[in-house]
Amino acid sequence: MLPLYLTEKDNNFSFEISIHDIKNDVYPHGHSFLELHYVFEGQGIEKINGIEHIMKPGTFAVIFPYQIHEMHIIKGSEVHLYNLCLSAKTLFDQDEYGLVMNKLLFDIDLNARTIYDMDEDTSEKVFTLLSEIHAEFKEDEIWRNFMLKAKIVELFILFDRYRRSLVAKENNSLRTTMGNDTWSIIHYVYKNWNTNITLKSLSQLFYLSEPYISTSFKQCLGISFHAFLRDLRIENACSLLTSSKMSITDITYEVGYLSYSTFVRVFHARKGVSPAMYRQIIKDNAVKT
């Protein structure tokens, strides 16, 4: 089965937390946002980019954008977990919050593991903090977003400290497969997706070979450079089709395509309908609701 790709709900999406009660298997899927989850009851097996890990109380997983993961629930069992989703924008923001999250997240070795079984003391702290985040998220109190951001940073600091303590015990040096050059390239593409970006132009800009850049994207994100750029453009096109009255021709050029026919072909291949039909479907659904 080909994996599904989930995308951010809208341009205002920043973070969302919920409790999932999982009774059935979760099919392979990836998404354009960051996801983490913490299991507090039940057992199962999770695969992240094909690597299996047993899920049990105390299991904490970080799923990076475009990584493929799936879950298999033990028959007769249920898995209960906190699920926290963070917009990709969070990882690229240049404010203090974004820079802290960037540092905490991208020290992680994506080719090693991003799923951990926490000890009892750390598990208790993580569970308490996630409960507080969940309660705060459901309310609409003054300073809500500031409080949520502070608690989310605290959560990732707890995770980072635990991860580093394990590395120290295993006598391994902290390292990252997403080197500074690769992360700089991904950051650049994310910020300039609607310009005429190619592997050749990136190679010239960053003084790195095209094969190196191509391989780095695949290793770090589990998706090729061209697929990453295509998905950024198509999802932003969907947003414009939904929220603006721009013509499809104007949207074509706005999201970085130089050819109307190419845009329509790529859009149909990803969404199963033409841009015009997509806009009409969204409009009809809005009327029904």
Score class of each variant (00 low, 15 high):
D107W: 01
D107L: 05
D107R: 15
D107Q: 15
I108S: 06
I108R: 05
I108W: 05
D109Q: 10
D109P: 01
D109L: 10
D109A: 14
D109F: 10
D109K: 09
D109H: 07
D109M: 08
D109I: 04
D109Y: 02
L110R: 14
L110S: 05
L110G: 07
L110C: 00
L110Y: 14
N111Q: 12
N111S: 12
N111C: 06
A112Y: 13
A112S: 10
A112I: 07
R113S: 14
R113Q: 09
R113I: 09
R113Y: 07
R113E: 14
T114A: 11
T114N: 12
T114K: 04
T114V: 07
T114G: 09
T114R: 06
T114M: 00
T114S: 15
I115Q: 08
I115V: 14
I115S: 13
I115R: 09
Y116I: 02
Y116P: 04
Y116F: 14
Y116M: 03
Y116C: 00
D117I: 10
D117W: 02
M118L: 15
M118G: 02
M118Q: 03
M118Y: 04
M118C: 11
M118D: 06
D119N: 11
D119M: 04
D119Q: 03
D119K: 04
D119H: 11
D119R: 02
D119Y: 07
E120K: 08
E120R: 07
E120M: 06
D121Q: 05
D121P: 07
T122G: 00
T122N: 00
S123E: 01
S123D: 01
S123P: 01
S123M: 00
E124D: 09
E124H: 13
E124T: 08
E124F: 02
E124A: 11
K125D: 01
K125M: 01
V126M: 13
V126P: 07
V126H: 07
V126C: 03
V126T: 13
F127C: 00
F127N: 02
F127W: 07
F127L: 04
T128Q: 08
T128M: 10
T128L: 11
L129P: 10
L129F: 09
L129N: 10
L129D: 07
L129G: 05
L130Y: 08
L130N: 03
L130R: 04
L130W: 10
L130E: 01
S131A: 15
S131F: 14
S131I: 12
S131W: 09
E132I: 09
I133T: 15
I133E: 02
I133P: 05
I133S: 06
H134M: 00
H134E: 02
A135T: 11
A135P: 05
A135V: 07
A135I: 08
A135D: 08
E136I: 15
E136A: 15
E136W: 12
E136F: 13
F137P: 05
K138Q: 14
K138N: 12
K138I: 10
K138Y: 09
E139F: 12
E139T: 15
E139N: 15
E139G: 10
